[in-house]
């Protein structure tokens, strides 16, 4: 079951994890991108912590999406912002939802990310962690583990989207920073749903 308080707890936990891992995310991005993923997401999730409030899970997620879009910059701001906004739209104004409905909302968020960014699984992006995590959550499985596995699988991939794609095969051997931050989001989600 997800209500407004638990949704906010998810985002707060995510912000803590992003903050703690900001240097690691930036290091991953320096290797194959432009070295600002951790800095940008930390700024974005500080805004989420300050602004993501509301009486329903949908309202909290919509405010989180807007905060990310307004504060983050780069590609990750619009992409994560769209993930939360589309999930919020799917949830409507229900004061609480069961896990099956919440899973459908996460799937809507993933679809929004893929439409906006144009990435498929295997392109070495956040989608490689988000997609298996959303599937696992819907099946009642371990979404955090699925996201972590998806993140680790990006190491052997050749980037086809985003700034790492300019490197072509020189991107092989590096974990995608977007997949790494997506895994943190699901680690945070599982920390508030499994107790």
């Amino acid at each position: 079951m997800m209500d407004a308080a638990r949704t906010r707890a998810w985002l707060t936990a995510a912000a803590r994890l992003i903050n703690a891992n900001s240097g690691h995310l930036t290091a991953l991005d320096t290797a194959i991108g432009d070295g600002d993923h951790g800095l940008n997401l930390r700024r974005g999730f500080e805004a989420v912590t300050a602004e993501a409030t509301g009486d329903t899970p949908g309202a909290v997620l919509k405010a989180a999406g807007n905060a990310l879009i307004d504060a983050t910059g780069g590609a990750s701001g619009p992409l994560y912002g769209t993930f939360f906004r589309r999930a919020a739209k799917a949830l409507g104004d229900a004061p609480e939802v069961d896990d099956a409905v919440f899973a459908q909302a996460l799937a809507a968020g993933l679809a929004g990310v893929q439409t906006l960014g144009g990435a498929a699984e295997g392109d070495k992006t956040m989608v490689d962690a988000l997609a298996p995590a959303v599937t696992a959550f819907a099946a009642g499985g371990d979404a955090a583990a699925a996201a972590a596995n998806g993140r680790d699988a990006t190491e052997s991939m050749t980037a086809r989207k985003g700034r790492a794609s300019y490197l072509g095969e020189r991107s092989i051997g590096h974990i995608d920073p977007g997949a790494a931050s997506a895994a943190l989001l699901f680690q945070a989600l599982c920390s508030v749903t499994t107790d």
Binding site: D34, N40, I69, D70, T72, G73, G74, A75, P78
Partner: peptide
């Protein structure tokens, strides 16, 4: 102008 090497935001 955005931050150094970072795009501006929609707003």
């Amino acid at each position: 102008p955005g931050e150094v090497f970072t795009s501006p935001v929609p707003g």
